[in-house]
């Protein structure tokens, strides 16, 4: 432990700060995908394995629109609407007819969607990485010795917080939000009290996909990354872990989880000598294992109470 602290406070302080900033950046993009998962889990108690791929498809749609000459942010908004509509259609055709308590068919369907969406994106846009438009001003907002805080990091984090605030307002202040919370709390009694369940869940899916698309666009807009059909494979594991860590049904938990996973990936793994760098994915899975074994409801999630 002394060694650990010594290494941080030594001449490597700059490096440490830089890594913390990286953690914030990565963490916020994971959090955005995690928010999408949380929305769907809240609505249908289902983990959507295709969430990452849906987001990837949305990001490709954004890229396509931008290539056709639309202004950047218009492309993002239309891309979000497009993937929202697509998600609503998917929910209606594939998900609604299954019993939400029977998990296996739902897992299988989302795995099937995973394969299909990934293949379609790869067929349409090829496997070659392409550069994504810069959503945020380039350059650094702040430099101190060797520590650089780029505009990208600031905007990624603040758009994540913004999305959460918007969703929070939507869920607490609007009529739809009330219906959504009622359905996620008890499906049967909300049906009895006259809530139209199908469209509510459908809107939840659309909302989730739109949030995911924004997340994937921001992820791909990272100056050091490019967009390609397989970019979400790793991010999916990180985001799922983030969602589980925060509690699968808590929106703000997703942010906390995302930042924690970003911190584990960019800071903790770098300072533990016996874990090689490429093990960050394994570290995330270990975190997932610990969380699910010790506290399945996560940090902020509601505890499931089972009647025995």
């Amino acid at each position: 432990m002394m060694l650990f602290v010594g290494r941080i406070w030594g001449p490597d302080m700059d490096l440490f700060l830089q890594r913390v900033i990286d953690a914030l950046t990565n963490g916020s993009t994971y959090a955005l995908i995690a928010v999408a998962m949380v929305l769907i889990f809240k609505a249908t108690t289902l983990i959507n394995f295709a969430q990452g791929e849906q987001a990837m498809l949305g990001a490709f749609a954004v890229l396509q629109l931008w290539n056709w000459g639309l202004p950047m942010w218009w492309a993002v908004i239309i891309g979000m609407i497009f993937s929202g509509i697509l998600a609503a259609v998917l929910e209606r055709t594939f998900i609604r007819k299954f019993d939400p308590a029977d998990h296996l068919p739902l897992v299988i369907i989302t795995l099937g969607l995973f394969l299909v969406i990934n293949a379609i994106a790869a067929i349409t846009w090829r496997f070659d990485p392409q550069s994504f438009p810069q959503l945020f001003p380039s350059g650094n907002a702040f430099t101190y010795n060797n520590v650089r805080l780029s505009w990208y990091s600031i905007f990624a984090f603040s758009s994540c917080v913004l999305v959460l605030i918007v969703l929070q307002t939507l869920l607490t202040k609007t009529k739809f939000g009330l219906a959504f919370r009622a359905v996620s709390s008890n499906l049967e009694s909300s049906r009895l009290s006259g809530i139209n369940i199908g469209p509510t869940l459908q809107f939840g899916w659309a909302l989730a996909a739109a949030a995911g698309t924004l997340g994937a666009s921001i992820y791909a807009a990272n100056p050091v990354l490019q967009i390609e059909p397989s970019m979400m494979l790793r991010a999916l594991i990180f985001s799922v872990t983030a969602a589980a860590l925060g509690g699968l049904d808590s929106l703000w938990g997703a942010l906390i989880g995302g930042l924690t996973i970003g911190f584990v990936q960019s800071v903790v793994v770098q300072y533990i000598p016996f874990i090689p760098n490429e093990m960050s994915l394994s570290a995330a899975v270990v975190v997932l294992l610990i969380v699910l074994t010790l506290r399945p409801s996560g940090v902020l999630g509601t505890r499931a109470v089972e009647r025995v």
């Binding site: 983990i47 998990h103 699910l292």
Partner: peptide
Amino acid sequence: GLYLALLTFG
């Protein structure tokens, strides 16, 4: 259930 699916996929 789903949690197990998640973990084993990881």
